[in-house]
Amino acid sequence: MPEAGRTDRRGFLADALRTSGGFALVGAGGFLVGRRGQEELQVWQLDPDKCTACGNCATYCVLDVSAVKCVNCFDMCGFCDICTGYFETNYWSLDTAAENQLCPTGAVIRRFVEEQSGQRFYEYTIDGPLCIGCGKCVKGCALMNGSMYLQVEHDRCVNCNECAIATACPAEAFYRIPANQVEIVKQSAIGVLERRGRQQLREADEDPQLREEGESLLARAAVQRQWRARQAGWDARQQGEEAPRGS
C-alpha cells in the first residue's frame, strides 16, 4: 500500500503514459497545423479579367519598381506584325524605333520568328526589369487578342499583409491565392491551354517530352478552373451577405 503523497509504480507508469500521450498529441497537432500552414501559404495575385490597367500598380507598390509586371500569354498571342500592344496607334513605321513603341520604358521586346502566307510573325516578350507595370501595353493589346496582362511577380513581391496596390485597386482585382498556384490566367486562356494540351497529347505518340508538356498544360488549366470555381462560389456568398445589408 503506497504511503500518502507518494505514487506507486503502476500509477507512475499510467501518469507517464498519459503525459507522453498528451505531448504526442500536441506534437502531432502542431506538425499537422504546420504542414497545413505550409500548404496554404497565400500570396497576392491579380485577376486579369478584372484588371482595368489603370496604372496604380506602377505607383502604389511599396517597392521602388513595382512587383507587378506585364506577361504575354503566348497561347493567346497572334504573333502579329502590327501588334497593338507594341506599336503606338499612330506609328510612323513598323520597326523598333522608340517613337513607334507604345511602351514608355521599352520593356516589350519584338523578335522576328518567321514569314508565312506572305505575313511576318513576331514574338513579343517582356523585359522584366524594365517593366514598371503601368499597363499601357495591356490596354493596347486588349483591343485585339488581349494576350498581354499584368501579374504579380512573386520573386519581387514582399507579400505585405496589406498590399498597398490591392487597397488602391479600383477594380478589386487582387486576391490571395495559394503560393503553389502562382498565377491567375484569363478565363479565355484556360480553354486555349486545354485545347493545346489535348493537341499535344494527340500528337505525342512516342515523344515523352511532348506528352509531359501536354499533361502540364492540362494540369495548369485544371488548377485555374478549380480556382475560378472556388472564387465564383466565394463571390456569390459575398454578394448574398452584402445584399441584406444594402437592402
Binding site: 489603370c54 496604372g55 496604380n56 506602377a58 503601368c134
Partner: peptide
Amino acid sequence: WGERGSGLSERFEF
C-alpha cells in the same frame, strides 16, 4: 484608395 489615380505622366497613358 487610389482615388486620385496613378499619378503617372501622360506618356504612360494609352
